[in-house]
Design a binder for these strands. Structure first.
Length: 554
RNA sequence: GGCCCGUUGGUGAAGUGGUUCAACACACAUGCCUUUCACGCAUGCAUUCAUGGGUUCAAAUCCCGUACGGGUCACCA
């Protein structure tokens, strides 16, 4: 029995002509140095922070070089199937503005000339490649049961030998064609293994764009390339897909580093050019003094939807990812404030070879700075966009009072040193609620009074202010001078300095008085500029709130 | 256990033999400014680069050992 006959017995319904596919998916016609990358997740329904990071890097590397970035779905494991799992991934990428040039664009649709981009639809292609290997005697069927494999492992452990299906432990490798034939005809289930020609004593060197030069023993394990359900394993799909889709740079998580010798061997077996590899370190999380991989089960911030819910601007997240990816980005961005992320050239060499800690504080800082540079209109748009899905009440309010809300968001903004108190869109309501009567009126108010605490004195200050001093047409200077007059009238220093020089001559200083006016108006001791707030609130509301306070404390 | 990788301050890190080599940023602390807070400004925060040894006139930077951390060893990706 020849190899050809054996291959026909095992895979009767497919051909073994791999050149048809090589011709169907020719080398891409791109400019010199263009990078073709891919994001290849399992259809689990959502993107993990680590994957988002990798896909961000992939997108960036492709874009910088006028290359191609595509989305391939790796669904060769049916046990992992999740309903609408593809759509979830597409949505997450879309939410973070990571666009694809080719690949899946919905649960069933795709774009691009190198598809199908979902592995379950590529079965024939994989099997053709498997059959080709079978015919050339470089692969063989294996009938070992899970128990037999387990037994081999036990023996190897006892003998303190390497674990795996290799050398003399690869018993199915020695099966004669006749034995194979009778097993197949008896209906025994089998898988296909690579007949490894590697020698563990030999070393192979592989260059990784991030990790540098790596040295491993050659692979000598007869790994499974096709499972009993006829679908390929990850390794084999990687070979076939990345070759046929003409991927130039395989950028993936560094859990794949250790299978590099296998992948090298696979490409060599077919005589295909090895793609360049870049293994991205996982994003870590600190917990109880030790670090571990960010886990989607334990860490809410691992799910990409978390940032969407919090209302951290997409661009801020990308800025953060870029600082994680290339440590020199931060300084570059600081020195080139007018430029954007797109102007920055990504460099593999600047990527950290060990896993960095995910620092949410840093992210929030970036977000805070980012929002502070936005125009009031942009802040309005971002906030209402966020509120639309996460805070209906606020959304309606913002929709109803568009111009008013913009003027609120514009306080101490659009100036040289803008205010930085909005960390993300979800925080904005809690920082501005008192500017909206609808929210203010229903709030169960607790006033944060400090040095001046006596309700009677406060009521007196308020009524004096509205009866004697307040005038809505005052300029800021006029307004402030009146505040000083008010302070003096109640025995408080007009200037903080005066008070500091003679603390015994005064009950306090101007700051104490303005604090009273601020708190009685907003309930909060920490607010933006009081004059601006009063201007926006207007006379009617100010009087109403002060009178309410006076009445309530009689 | 085998194989591979890594270890610079609270955090992200710059720096791969010698002109301040421990930059920069976040966080933290103090002070100044200021009608509050925030902003801004100023100052402080690793005498030392996991550790032991070696090479060298000279090492965070090169070599070896040790410790610790991570990854991987599936018909999962």
């Amino acid at each position: 029995m020849t190899n050809k006959e054996l291959a026909d017995l095992l895979l009767p319904n497919v051909g073994s002509d791999i050149t048809q596919y090589e011709n169907k998916y020719p080398k891409r016609n791109l400019k010199e140095g263009a990078i073709v990358t891919r994001f290849a997740p399992s259809p689990t329904g959502f993107v993990h922070m680590g994957s988002l990071f990798a896909s961000f890097v992939e997108r960036k590397a492709a874009k910088d070089s006028d290359g191609v970035f595509y989305l391939r779905i790796e669904d060769t494991d049916q046990k992992r199937e999740v309903e609408n799992g593809v759509q979830g991934i597409i949505n997450d990428l879309k939410n973070f503005d990571i666009s694809i040039d080719e690949g899946m664009i919905s649960e069933t649709e795709e774009i691009g000339a190198y598809g199908p981009y979902i592995q379950s639809k590529r079965k024939d292609i994989y099997q053709t490649f498997v059959k080709y290997l079978l015919e050339s005697g470089k692969a063989y069927p294996c009938f070992c049961s899970a128990e037999e494999i387990e037994d081999i492992r036990l023996i190897q452990e006892k003998r303190k030998q390497r674990i795996g299906y290799y050398g003399r432990y690869a018993k199915c490798r020695k099966l004669t064609p006749e034995e194979i034939k009778s097993k197949v005809e008896a209906g025994e289930s089998y898988i296909i293994r690579l007949k490894s020609m590697g020698n563990f004593e030999n070393k192979v060197r592989i260059h990784d764009l991030i990790k540098g030069d790596l040295e491993f023993p050659e692979n000598d394990i007869d790994v499974v390339i096709m499972k009993s359900d006829g679908l390929p394993t990850y390794h084999f799909a990687h070979l076939v897909d990345d070759y046929l889709m003409r991927t130039t740079h395989v950028i993936r998580g560094d859990e794949w580093v250790s299978s590099l010798p296998l992948h090298l061997q696979l490409f060599q077996t077919f005589g295909f050019k090895l793609p360049k590899y870049a293994h991205v370190s996982p994003i870590m999380k600190e917990e109880n003094g030790s670090r571990r991989k960010l886990s989607k089960r334990k860490d809410p911030e691992a799910a990409v939807s978390y940032y969407h819910e919090k209302g951290i601007p997409v661009d801020a997240v990308k800025l953060y990812l870029m600082t994680l990816a290339n440590s020199n980005f931060e300084q570059w961005y600081d020195a080139n404030k007018d430029k954007t992320l797109d102007d920055f050239k990504f460099d593999f060499k600047k990527m950290s070879s060990s896993g960095g800690l995910f620092d949410i504080e840093k992210l929030m800082n970036i977000s805070k700075n980012y929002i502070s540079r936005l125009s009031a209109v942009k802040v309005y748009e971002g906030t209402i966009n966020w509120a639309k899905t996460y805070d209906k009440e606020f959304y309606l309010l913002l929709e109803q009072h568009r111009d008013y809300a913009i003027s609120v968001f514009n306080i101490e903004r659009e100036q040289k040193k803008p205010r930085k108190d909005f960390g993300c869109y979800s925080e904005i309501k809690s920082q501005t609620w008192y500017m909206f009567d609808e929210l203010y009126d229903k709030e169960n108010k607790t006033y944060e009074f400090q040095t001046i605490n006596d309700k009677e004195e406060i009521a007196e200050i308020l009524s004096t202010y509205i009866n004697k001093y307040y005038d809505e047409v005052d300029t800021k200077d006029e307004w402030f001078n009146k505040m000083k007059d008010l302070a003096a009238e109640f025995g408080y220093a007009r200037e903080v300095r005066e008070y500091k020089e003679n603390p015994n001559s005064y009950k306090g200083h101007i700051g104490d008085i303005s604090l009273v006016l601020r708190i009685a108006l907003t309930t909060k001791s920490m607010t933006p500029d009081l004059y601006d707030i009063m201007q926006i609130l207007g006379k009617e509301r100010i009087f109403k709130r002060y009178n309410q306070f006076i009445e309530g404390n009689k």
